[in-house]
Design a protein around this nucleic acid. Sequence first.
RNA 1: GGCUAUGUAGCUCAGUCGGUUAGAGCGCAGCAUUCAUAAUGCUGAUGUCGGUGGUUCAAGUCCACCCAUAGCCA
Length: 754
Amino acid sequence: MTARPRKIFVTCALPYANGSIHIGHLLEAIQTDIWVRFQKVRGHDCLYLCADDAHGTPIMLSADQQGITPEQLIERIHAEHERDYAGFEVGFDNFHTTHSDENREVAEAIYARLDAAGHIKRRTITQFYDPVKQMFLPDRFIRGECPFCHAQDQYGDSCESCNRTYTPTDLVNPVSSISGATPVEKESEHYFFDLPAFETVLHDWVGAGHLQPEVANKLEEWFSAGLKEWDISRDAPYFGFEIPGAPGKYFYVWVDAPMGYFASLKNLLDRQGRDVAEYTGAGSDAEMYHFIGKDIMYFHTLFWPALLQGSGHRLPSNVFVHGFLTVDGKKMSKSRGTFINARTYLDHLDPEYLRYYFAAKSGSGVDDIDLNLEDFRQRVNADLVGKVVNVASRCAGFINKRFGGTLAAHIHDEALLQEFTGAGEAIAAAYEAREYARAVREIMALADKANQYIDRHKPWEIAREDPGSGELQQVCSLGLNLFRILVIYLKPVLPGLAQRSEEFLGISPQTWDDQATPLLDHRINKFKPLLTRVEKERIEAMIEDSKESLGAGDAAGTGAGDDAAEGAGAGDAGGTTAGAGDAGGATAGAGDAGAATAGAGDAGGATAGAGDAGGATAGAGDADNAGASQTGADAINKHLADDPISAEVSFDDFVKIDLRVATIARAEYVDGADKLLQLTLDLDGETRNVFAGIKSAYRPEDLVGRQTVMVANLAPRKMRFGVSEGMVLAAGPGGEEIFIVTPDTGAKPGMRVK
RNA sequence: GGCUAUGUAGCUCAGUCGGUUAGAGCGCAGCAUUCAUAAUGCUGAUGUCGGUGGUUCAAGUCCACCCAUAGCCA
């Protein structure tokens, strides 16, 4: 059945290195993993590659906000991503990063060939520029009034309210969402990739007929609309690779993101002393597949193949596009607790439940997939525990107790066994075609047959009448053999269950073809529950936890360092930060439709999540445009949006900050300072001189005698007007909106705040 | 706004080229059973196939429009 081993290279979309992995990402990673594991168990040479998408404006700003370098940020996220994928048994052969030497090499090599072939054009364009932050603004970082419907606070590229698209310069009263400044138009030379030159090649590639029909339809629409040149450069400051020979110009994140597939492969093959060209070269005999979400088709079916063609590489064998994930019929939502991070899930539930459920609902189309939590529980319990594992459970006892754990040497019902082994090819065909739901349906139909068989022969009755009966041994032995076949068929989906079952049966790791060889006169081990039921309470607890991770931010404020565990929370709620939303949407996050309008806006910046469920798709990482409509935005308020919650800190870090109640003993203007007031703070005897930037909101005479809270152990800082020995706590965006913190009545100067 | 998809029992889905009475699993009801992680087996009820109109001897299936949902508009 398994003829000549195929040589296959598979990728899933790269998660953006700006936030945590969530169940949307996992839908894609698991669908891909199932396909890869299927190929491997069938004996093919299949490599599964992924990487973090680590470049772009959102990451740069996010790191900036957290007070760390982009390198530090992406390193931290990389470790978290790797751990979370592994937790779901996603078996990457390599998980690399686009911010790597390999990727720089790949990007520069491809660019050099494109440029030499005349596929790169240079042109000066006008763009919005933030005069305060001194940087060009991606569309998603500009907000203003929609030129069509006049909804307030819309993104620079499209309106959440009326859904129309436009350019940032069309906005009424545009504002930079980074600094709040009014952006100015400024010229800059940009580099463009000549996509239209590849129309014929791309059209042929699409016409070859291997793409999904829905995808081909969408591409036809794009072709008829006409391909346009693609702006592939961004001006400094930008976190990415500088374009060779173009100081201050960087590759747009979407240029080097798909190249990360090659870089990850190269990183792996270099270690094995092999040449990446055997997979990527124009004459490669390997198959190459990309699994992606439907939101990033343009990049993978047009830009990427064109870049490959133009630089003398092979084209993808296919691009498998999937839909998005919804939870209980709606986009993932933080307020509903359905924006579930990978880590939060793992804190409560077995990853194989989710793998099975996703498999049971995945087809080869681009339809969205709904995680219906009640259906999830019932389905997993009924199918896996009630049907599959139950087959082993109801046979094992007899074999172990009555026959010393030894299986019969004879097949009790040859025809039934034949039926099971004979189903293998149809199931394999379903896996191969990514029709996992069909594969699962057929496997479960077999499981029903196994249970019916046991029911028909009633081993418990034979045992009562004739405890040592050969028939009893044969019936239960066949039951276990049927179970073994079911588990082999499920192995791509449930590697963990397969491994535990192999241990129970006392057999080596099984391949697909092993299903044809029954276990006869074979010694098995004691049976232990292989999989436990999904408890309703566990699901509820997970949802609760997901809700909490949104609030994690405030918690931090109140000093609750407790649930440090929810790193995840930090990740998305705050962590994701600014750009994320926009950007990336790319990565997706979930947005809560409801909140969309208002929230969306804000979300923009913030948060995270904006995006949609689909995040699944991940990969993107697009700083400016791509993420566009992804925003959904959750019901996150404006302040969180404008000023996302910082990276999580440990309790130990928190207690390092010594906050004290202080009385403002003196307050006065500072000669020559626009924003500062000089305060003398009394900490019960000890006084501190502090310069506070609150002049725009307070008059000195209104402050004297008031209590506030200060950071008492901040390193003294020398300023133009003297040494400042601490900081006063205050909230607000600035200007007249600054509010100093005041303790409740009764607090005494010098008391520690904790 | 334009485009590409999706909409079938309470839930999740399958329905090929238009062709008897529209299917499965779960859930539900009844019965049986007690080997098994309250698991299993048998029987049964449940649908204006999103809506309206059209083509046809015949429409879940084809066409038009509308509604809802998702994505894309680089």
